[in-house]
Simulated assay, not measured.
Amino acid sequence: MGRHMTSAKTGQCIVCGRTFPLSKMHRTGYLRPHLAEMIVEEVKDCDENSLICDEDLARFRRRYVEKLLDEERGELSELDKRVLDSFERGASTVQRSIAGLLERNPTFGERVADKVASFGGSWTFILSFLGVLVVWMAINVVGLFAQPFDPYPFILLNLVLSCLAALQAPVIMMSQRRQEEKDRMRSENDYMINLRAELEIRQLHEKIDHQMAHQWERLAEMQQIQIELLERHGGGRSPS
């Protein structure tokens, strides 16, 4: 029998050989069959009564999941590896790290770009700019001043419009690029969350199937014992 119990409250890990409290140990016989087989292949003295610590179990879980993903998808992407890292640590660090990047304080240039893009795509800007154009052309056509500052064909107005378009376009592109970066990060975050949920659900299904198989074995064993007891009890009776 492999190494397991060392005292009433501690146990020795079959993989690393260190001693841990039983609350941080897992019996290999209760693990999923494929995961237990992977541990047995690496540790020859391992049996169903052997104990494994949380750290080594997380490492084997990661290798098992990585093997599944590699068989299904081929080469793993950087996002898949990040999900495996968080899966091994047993914490939702992927979601928190993405949320931190999305909630960071924007720089002064980014705030200006967002405001310019927001104002430039509103009806307020369109109507205001249309009013400025009408007033500009009316002043120079009607002749409110003795000398129009921009007579027809409004060369100065064309220059102002060209300069405005030349400055506004890159600022709006900066804002759109930052928004695209946010959308990309959100989509990557959704992908990693979905992948993590898929892996956890798959492991949960395997664990439930494994537990049901154990329960069926125990029920069959109990029924066999009951049948044997009934046969002995019936065989020991004297005929009336």
Rank of each mutant, 00 (worst) to 15 (best):
L133S: 13
I98D: 00
S86H: 02
E75N: 11
C53T: 06
V135E: 01
G74K: 06
A117S: 12
R82I: 03
D45V: 02
V132A: 13
G121P: 03
L57M: 03
E48A: 15
T107D: 11
D56C: 15
R73G: 03
V40C: 15
L57N: 02
L84G: 04
V134E: 05
R89K: 14
L51S: 11
R104G: 02
R63K: 10
R82V: 00
N105L: 08
W123P: 12
A117V: 00
D80H: 11
A138V: 06
R104N: 03
R73K: 15
V134F: 07
R73N: 10
F108R: 11
A58G: 12
E41G: 12
K115M: 11
G121Q: 11
E66D: 08
I98Y: 14
S77E: 07
K115F: 06
L69I: 01
L51G: 13
S97T: 05
I39D: 10
S122N: 06
V65Q: 08
R61I: 14
F129Q: 14
R89I: 03
T107Q: 07
E103M: 05
G90E: 10
G121I: 04
E72I: 05
C46E: 10
C53N: 11
S97V: 07
Q95A: 14
E37W: 01
F119M: 06
S118H: 13
L57W: 04
G109P: 00
L127D: 14
D54C: 09
E78K: 03
R62D: 12
L57A: 09
